[in-house]
Every structure is written in structure tokens, then in C-alpha cells.
Design a protein around this nucleic acid. Sequence first.
DNA 1: CGGGCCACCTGGCGGC
DNA 2: TGCCGCCAGGTGGCCC
Length: 292
Amino acid sequence: MPELPEVETIKRGLAASIPHHTIKSALLSPLAHSLRLTPSPHSKQKLENQQFDKKSLFSRRGKYLLLPLKNKTILCIHLGMSGKIITSETPPQTSPHNHLILALVHQNKKLWMTYHDPRRFGFFQILSPEHPSLPALDNLGEEPFSITPDRLLSLLHPRKIPIKNALLNQKIIAGIGNIYASEALFSASIHPLSPSSSLSLQDCEKLILSLQNVLSLAIKSGGSSLRDHRKSDGSLGMFQHQWNVYNREGKPCPLCKLPHIIHRASLSGRSSFFCPHHQKKLSLPSPPLARP
DNA sequence: CGGGCCACCTGGCGGC
DNA sequence: TGCCGCCAGGTGGCCC
């Protein structure tokens, strides 16, 4: 899915196109009930004839998109693996996967915003003062752009799980997915299987800088379009052309060059890509030797 | 707590 | 051409 850069790209696209619009109608697909979270029966009524709240900007938390409305509710969208949000000046083509279509208007100009998600691993929910959050949203870890090395060290220190798995755990750090976890570990020269507890403060500093660098570059390129991601105007993200390791098994390591090639390993059922030559696996400090 | 599974879904791709 | 198996950007649950 959309990881942090893709969601951020969509947020920025929407912020540039729809915040002054009024929602004239909201159409839910017949399949919307089988999204990962079922939308409340009142979703349609809560959205229709509402305006976006100009006092609260559109925002993103981890991989969650938050669109505040004037009636103090927030349209919260998670894109799962295959979700897209596309705006268009004509109604979207009919599809069973258009789970939410908002017909918008501003100064007599019509615009449609469509949430499309074939696999239905994503969802949308209306957060209201009565139901102000979601468990997963409450439990999100810190944002990669604000976490400090000290904080990351303290989160990693008690854990033996591979650092790659820790990066994918949204409760530890929010917004990182399978592509950017591999890319950041590559840049930080950290082996994905390194135990989380083996990272030093300096490793944490380097990892945070690598994360921030790769995420910033990806946002600048409009995210990575592997297959489903589109910017909100329908155009492609371009960061997939700048991947160093993701999906590049067998290709030369861009850093070490031949004969060193990118390897692939499966970690908790997810592909990880790395260069074993410069991403050295860290080991845990040896346990103290038993005194004879 | 953690690792290894599975489930939820559709669709694209390569191999035969 | 067509079918089949495999794989995919995420998350959460269950069992050991």
C-alpha cells in the first residue's frame, strides 16, 4: 500500500484541490460494508452537505489520512494495500470498488473525490466527538520526522525482534512499510536481521536520518507507484525509479558495485532486500561468561 | 513477548 | 490463448 510518502502525497494533492468544496452527496458502494472496518450506517448523512473545516488542515498520521469537516467530525481514511483516492472533474467510471464517492462543488464547479480499493484491506470512518478515535490510531508510535535518537533507542532496546520488523511495527514508529523499511536500512548500512536491541545510539541517529532522507525524497517524487498508487490527480508517483534495493534482487549493489549484489530474504512472510556486503548484521553483546 | 502461521481480498504477471 | 500458482505497498488474530 501506500506508505507514509504515498499518503502524504495524496494529502497534499487533496489540500490543493478540495478544501473549499462542499460535499453535495456521498455514495457508498454495495461492498463498502466489507472493508476492513464497516462504515457506520450514518456515514452518508454525516458527510452530505458538509464543508471541509478551513481552520483544521488536512493531515496525516502514520498511514492514516485525516480530513476534518466543519461539523467537528473527521473523515479518516486508510488505504490498505490497494487503496487510491482520485479527484476528477467528471464522475468516476462505474466500478464495484469505488467504495466512497463524494460529489463536491465550489463556486459552481463540480469535482468528484473517489476512494477506490479493490482488495478492501483499507477503510474509511467518520470520527466524531462521540467516537473521536480508533484503537489503531491511538496506538500509533511516533512520526519518523519527529522521533529522537534517544527515544528510538529506548523503544528498540528491550526488543530482540529484527530491526526490519520493528520498523514495520506501527506502534513503535508510524508510517514505515515494506518498501521504505528496506530502503532506509540500506542507506543506514544496517542489516535487516539485526536484533533491535543491538542498535547503538549512533545507529539510531543514522537510521532516523536515513528514514527522513528516503521519505523526503519519496514525497518529492510523489511516492512509489508499484501497481496501485496514484497521486490524487491520477498521475503516477515516480520514486520507484530511485529504489536502491526494493525489488532489485540480483542487481548490483548501487553502493558497493559488482560483484556485490542485492539479496532477498523473507522476514515474517515479507520480502526484505539488502546488500550483505555493506549491511553487516549486528550481533547482541555476548552474555557474561559463567565463572567456573 | 515473539515467531510463525493464517485470514482478509483482487488482480497482475510469468510459466507452462 | 488460457489456466494456475504466486506474489503484492497492510493489519490483526491465533497458537505455541
